[in-house]
Design a protein around this nucleic acid. Sequence first.
DNA 1: TTTAAATGATAGTAATACTATCTAATAAAA
DNA 2: TTTTATTAGATAGTATTACTATCATTTAAA
Lengths: 225, 225
Amino acid sequence: MKVQLQIKMNEKLFLRDPEQTELGKKIIRHSIQLISKNGFELFTFKKLAEDIGTTEAGIYRYFENKHRLLIYITAWYWGWLQYRVTFITNNIKDPSVKLKKVIHLLATTVVDDDQTIHINEDLLHQIIIAEGSKAYLTKHVSEDNKEQLFKPYKDLCAVIADIILACNTKYKYPRSLASTIIEMAHFQNFFMNNLPSLTDFGKTKDELKVVSFLEDLVFSSVRKK
Amino acid sequence: MKVQLQIKMNEKLFLRDPEQTELGKKIIRHSIQLISKNGFELFTFKKLAEDIGTTEAGIYRYFENKHRLLIYITAWYWGWLQYRVTFITNNIKDPSVKLKKVIHLLATTVVDDDQTIHINEDLLHQIIIAEGSKAYLTKHVSEDNKEQLFKPYKDLCAVIADIILACNTKYKYPRSLASTIIEMAHFQNFFMNNLPSLTDFGKTKDELKVVSFLEDLVFSSVRKK
DNA sequence: TTTAAATGATAGTAATACTATCTAATAAAA
DNA sequence: TTTTATTAGATAGTATTACTATCATTTAAA
């Protein structure tokens, strides 16, 4: 028996829920493929419609515009990651072991999750690395934020901040450190592969070195007496 | 007597050097104003031309497209910052004092520099915070990088990495820590002002708290025995 | 004073980012 | 089983964007 995982999404992210119909699921699946292939700038609803075999107007019934669709898939990713964090830290007592597992989860390649058939988490991970911050780096970030569009990201950040606090109740910047871990897990990966001289892992391109860097960074500050 | 500062730019960034003509300087000045006002997505050469009182075709004589223009102004910013880093750390012996000054410089509001009359560094700083990473978060980052378009960023990172190494020759991740400082100086500022729950400074919105966070983060790992 | 460089003015095109409308298919309700 | 609502397909159309091309005019250098 296979369990299907469904992530409850904020209804303001879409016009019609893509999880509820075949076309909706195709939109998500093909968006992920197209964005990871050509990048977000070259991605259009026209190309997506052609790729799926439907029409542009059909896509617009589900999403207001391509930026909302990007927010949707990033939000989905953060929601899924929070589920994975909860899962892999379950039954672990030691908060620093938890934190290590979280860093590893964030900074290494995602294994495709069989519980979500229409979403390729590995491609999605690549999208988050290269396009994720474009979801909030806009002039309308505050209005989007009021609509709770970034809640999954903020929730994940809060979960990680709690683990940090459990490691050291006196640590003063748990949230900022959490967002730093999340962002740097992705940026250092991007730099390593594309602008290697901004990192110390350009030669080997080994994800585990990003993990080591982050562990060193995080535990030096959290464990400092 | 006032000294004029000029930053030598990579010639591949433009079609015609904007520093050499009046129109060119207007393009830079008005781009900075328009991008900081409406954001990069809503910025077009048409609007820029109207703002300046010239034609769209006129802008295209200087820059291939708006993305190249963004790379140009970000590159200018990194070049200028490197000059400022060199300036403020001059004659200082203690590398950790140097590093503290660098963190402060990166994470606090820029004071407009009289030596560059046609560039408003404060607006430019705001642009770097919200749009800076879009310069390299593209599918053509590697080709752009081959043309050395990101050299000023990489040079600045190298300068900071050297200061870090001077603090502790055994520290293993000087470049990654340098790029983390640069990115987080900007991202934590953006989060503080727009997505405050991702930080610990949402209430006060005080830039100096970003400085404290970064100092704590950096010196815990660099000074660790 | 000739000549070259830079700018202005205008036109045009393909693609993007939508909106609107009408019809066909399909699935749930009566 | 027919009615009715929902979803999708097909087509058309518009304003804006992202350019390219051309030609005349102004400005500056030789």
